[in-house]
Simulated scan of single mutants.
Amino acid sequence: MQQVDLLADRQRGVLSRAQCLAAGLTVEQIRWRLTSQRWQRVHPGVYVCHSGPIDPSTRASAALLACGSGALLGGRSAGRELGLLDDAPEIVEVQFPHRRRVVAPAGASVSRVRQLEQRRHRRAAWPPCTSVEDTVLDLAEAANAAGAQAWVAQACQRRMTTPPRIEDALDRRARHRWRDLLKAALDDVVDGAESIAEMRYIRRVERAHGLPTATRQLRSVRGGRRRRDDNAYVVQKVLVEVDGQVGHVGVGRLADLRRDRASAVEGWLPVRVGWPDVGEQCCATARDLAAVLTSRGWTGQLRRCGPGCTALTAPGEHRGSERGGLVG
């Protein structure tokens, strides 16, 4: 029947028993499709309308229908639908209204959520899922501190949402384990940070040690190409590029080198910091950067970030865990 086929196409080849009956199929017609193996039963009362392999997207749709009215994909399942994750999770994550009780279908986890309708993504396409902002908050809730900040940075960097929209979603929640941390991370994103490494640079190196405030994501043309620099100290003409945990290798590394040469030709001093430099070696990084900035006219005063800070210790005097300086 055409109505059944259209609905199945919309729902990635999945139908519920109730939908089939509402569309005009009889119980005998449903049974014949199953016994002839034209359809597959994946959950009680939920059918896949073909006999081939069931891919992750189809499995997610089936779990939604098994959970009934008002259910949404959430967590990592919603993240994959929205493009925050590349790989499908092994377990389909489904959220449903708090007033209902649902037994988790095979291969899925379920959670009851108050005011779930407020978290629904306002798109018309199947499958229904949580909004980008609420998905980011769910993913952050399940992550460690660094991971929580990384989810916020990633969503904003990909232009999928904005800090104010995430903050609005956070304010609607009575509880979130990383509320204060995410509020600070959102401030960093507004300030121009686009990754967890850049957030750490702003907070642990620059602000904590009293360095001047850089211009974030400065756009310019150098060497005949458009550039965007992570942190530009315009007065001193110093560029600080922050590489993440992996950094650039191969072609990316060669592009970095060409970029640095083009900057140097126009009088800028390019400095690169890596992941350790914004973590356990942040005090040494601040000390070295202060020296660089001072050599180019900065007259400010470096300060300690805390009792154990080694930023004011001369290089070589400290024999603790910090040995770092700048990378590149």
Rank of each mutant, 00 (worst) to 15 (best):
I196F: 11
R177G: 07
L170S: 09
R200V: 02
H176W: 08
D188I: 01
A174T: 14
E167S: 13
G192V: 09
L211D: 07
G192L: 10
R172V: 00
R204H: 15
A185C: 13
A184Q: 14
G210Q: 04
L182M: 12
I166Q: 05
R207W: 05
H209R: 02
A169K: 09
S195V: 07
R172W: 06
R179Q: 11
D191C: 03
L211S: 05
R207K: 14
D188Q: 12
D168Q: 14
G210E: 05
D180V: 12
L211V: 05
A174D: 10
I196H: 08
D171Q: 11
R175K: 11
I196N: 05
M199E: 07
R200C: 02
D188L: 12
R204T: 01
M199S: 13
H176E: 04
V205I: 06
V205S: 04
I196D: 10
E167Y: 01
K183Y: 06
Y201I: 02
I202R: 14
D187P: 00
I202E: 07
G192Q: 11
R203K: 11
H209L: 05
E206W: 02
H176Y: 09
E194M: 13
S195R: 07
A185T: 15
R203C: 01
G192M: 09
V189E: 09
I202T: 03
D187G: 15
